[in-house]
């Protein structure tokens, strides 16, 4: 299912192009972080890849196929938690898979252990703190054993220690062999996690570099301006 090749991807609700002929190639290893100013379509890109929205043009190729041949999972910025126990919030996501109930329970307990929620399995998910909710959402995605994990702003509005816990889990998921494609606004997080950076502006990929090179010598003027904090927010809406 890799490399993932995107060519000429367009998305233009009500005629206004948010993604305007985006080209991108993503390998099957490591953590790719999508950076870019607000409104450039970072979240949109993830949703289009997840198949939650139809594109208005362009193609997405998964290796040689038109659709992903292996499982993908996504964690949303505001993760959806059922008014049920922490345990059930992971376990229900395994029900569509052909697993025995014992195997579902084993996997659920295992991931909850690994995200540090083993002591809260019986509690109601809606009563968790922000950091715990995010870890629970990651546990659910992790339990599904995806080949590709899409993360939309996984640590937005979390405090530093909760952010650190989430980053540790993301690294562990990568180590287990899943490809991670995530968005963030936290440049520090990008430097800590990213193997490569995809910089998005004006509806296109302006730069796709290894993290080291991107932060050391950004090539495009837009990326340079973004890193210096000079890029106006409205750039995505410019004509």
């Amino acid at each position: 299912m890799f490399p993932l090749r995107i060519t000429g991807l367009r998305f233009q609700p009500n005629g206004r192009a948010v993604l305007d002929g985006l080209d991108l190639e993503v390998s099957g290893e490591g953590i790719s972080v999508v950076l870019g100013p607000n409104g450039t379509g970072k979240t949109l890109l993830l949703r289009l890849l997840a198949g939650l929205l139809p594109a208005d043009g362009g193609t997405i190729r998964w290796g040689e196929a038109a659709s992903p041949s292996e499982r993908l999972a996504m964690v949303f910025q505001q993760p959806m938690l059922l008014r049920m126990s922490v345990f059930t919030n992971v376990e229900f996501a395994l029900r569509p898979q052909a697993l025995t109930s014992a195997e579902r329970h084993r996997r659920t307990n295992e991931v909850l252990e690994r995200v540090g929620l083993a002591h809260r399995t019986g509690d109601c998910a809606r009563l968790l703190s922000g950091g715990e909710r995010q870890r629970l959402a990651l546990a659910r995605a992790w339990a599904m054993r995806p080949r590709l994990l899409l993360l939309d702003e996984p640590t937005a509005s979390l405090d530093p220690s909760a952010t650190e816990a989430v980053e540790r889990i993301i690294r562990e998921i990568r180590t287990e062999g899943a490809k991670v494609l995530m968005t963030t606004h936290n440049l520090g997080q990008a430097t800590r996690l990213a193997d490569d950076i995809i910089f998005l502006a004006n509806g296109r990929v302006q730069e796709h570099e290894s993290a080291q090179r991107f932060f050391a010598r950004p090539q495009s003027p837009a990326a340079r301006a973004f890193l210096q904090g000079e890029l106006p927010w409205r750039i995505a809406f410019d004509h």
Partner: peptide
């Protein structure tokens, strides 16, 4: 609110009915 996540997870209509009624 739940539809995108349910569809990614692969929850079918009947399973969705049970989960939503419980939720």
């Amino acid at each position: 609110d739940y539809a995108p996540e349910f569809s990614l997870i692969g929850i079918g209509r009947m399973q969705a009915v049970v989960l939503l009624l419980t939720d």
